[in-house]
């Protein structure tokens, strides 16, 4: 009982999210006959996957007290770079490899400006956002148009569409893997421990001999890598690369992370909570589609959930403490 109370106090936000998720599931199963089907769940998970893959890395980054607003642009850039190279004769595997390396370089730019030079992450990563987005348009132009859709080799889309073991779409497998990797990093590695320490108290971390610059830089590179991976996965599945995709994705990622209980000041948070946050957002959107509610109610619901969850967790959090 005591442990239960302790859990309720410290993880109020997760408890609320699980409650909301359960309520959504039950409500939607009753309200819509199409909800409880493998196709529908696969659809939701495919949408959530892109966010979760990036947010896994971005969550640990935010635990250090930093964040990255350039993920949407890096995703668009990576998708279009991969499509361009595949279309112009680079083997798909090699193209993916090069794309991921370049995506890490974008992360490296953020690492350099934020971690090494100490620029405010809002400005630095918005700068990267503009630059990456600009280059995405540039690549589309090299190809001679706005989107790259025609002339993609067959194995380009096969990569994204062939289910793993004939069952699960690749994006979902990657999502599960990313979550598993970051839960592991969070719980069992020195990197995870040090990330929390940096977010909890940067000065103490430095005086304790933690390589604060290096760790934050590494995490930025990892976020770049996962944003690039998401870009490859998305383009491959859809069979279309557009320089305009992923607008506002950075906010989706941050919302999932914050809903999951991670503080933007750092030091607090968990991968598991982030997954819950992303699922709540994903199923809400799905439910509204199923119920035929116009799309603009979704954005309203988005804001209400964000503010409401935080209000609730504050209210109950303090009550549990008293």
């Amino acid at each position: 009982m005591k442990y239960l109370m302790h859990y309720l106090q410290t993880d109020m936000q997760k408890v609320i999210l699980m409650g909301i998720l359960a309520a959504l599931m039950i409500g939607l199963s009753i309200a819509s006959p199409n909800f409880l089907s493998i196709t529908n769940f696969t659809n939701v998970l495919l949408k959530v996957a892109i966010i979760v893959i990036i947010a896994s890395a971005a969550n640990l980054l935010m635990i250090t007290g930093n964040f990255d607003l350039s993920v949407g642009a890096v995703l668009a850039f990576s998708g279009i770079l991969h499509a361009y190279m595949s279309k112009h004769g680079v083997p798909v595997e090699l193209s993916i490899l090069i794309t991921l390396i370049v995506a890490m370089a974008w992360g490296g730019v953020n690492a350099l400006t934020v971690s090494v030079l100490g620029i405010n992450p809002v400005i630095a990563t918005v700068g990267t956002l503009f630059i990456a987005r600009g280059f995405a348009f540039l690549i589309a132009r090299w190809d001679g148009g706005a989107n790259i859709m025609m002339g993609l080799p067959r194995d380009f889309v096969d990569f994204g569409r062939d289910p793993v073991f004939g069952l699960v779409p690749l994006a979902i497998v990657v999502m599960v893997a990313a979550v598993a990797i970051f839960i592991f990093i969070e719980k069992r590695t020195a990197l995870g421990r040090k990330a929390y320490a940096i977010g909890a108290n940067l000065k103490s971390a430095k005086l304790s001999g933690i390589n604060t610059v290096g760790i934050v830089a590494l995490l930025y590179v990892l976020v770049g890598l996962f944003a690039g991976l998401s870009g490859v996965l998305q383009t491959s599945r859809v069979g279309l690369a557009s320089p305009t995709v992923g607008k506002g994705l950075e906010f989706d990622v941050i919302v999932a992370i914050i809903l999951g209980g991670t503080s933007m000041l750092g030091g607090v948070g968990s991968t598991f909570g982030m997954v819950l946050g992303a699922l709540v957002v994903g199923f809400t959107a799905n439910g509204m589609v199923l119920l035929g509610i116009p799309f603009y109610y979704q954005t309203i619901a988005y804001g209400v959930i964000l503010i409401g969850t935080l209000l609730l967790s504050q209210k109950f959090g303090t009550r549990a403490k008293a």
């Binding site: 906010f251 941050i254 919302v255 914050i258 933007m264 116009p294 799309f295 603009y296 109610y297 979704q298 954005t299 309203i300 619901a301 988005y302 804001g303 209400v304 964000l306 503010i307 935080l310 209000l311 504050q314």
Partner: peptide, 22 residues
């Protein structure tokens, strides 16, 4: 309610944008 300005106004950004469309 002691919600950080980032989250509060981000939430209002979504809500307001939705209401505008609505």
């Amino acid at each position: 309610y002691d919600i950080s300005p980032f989250i509060a106004t981000l939430g209002m950004m979504f809500i307001g944008g939705g209401v505008a469309l609505l």
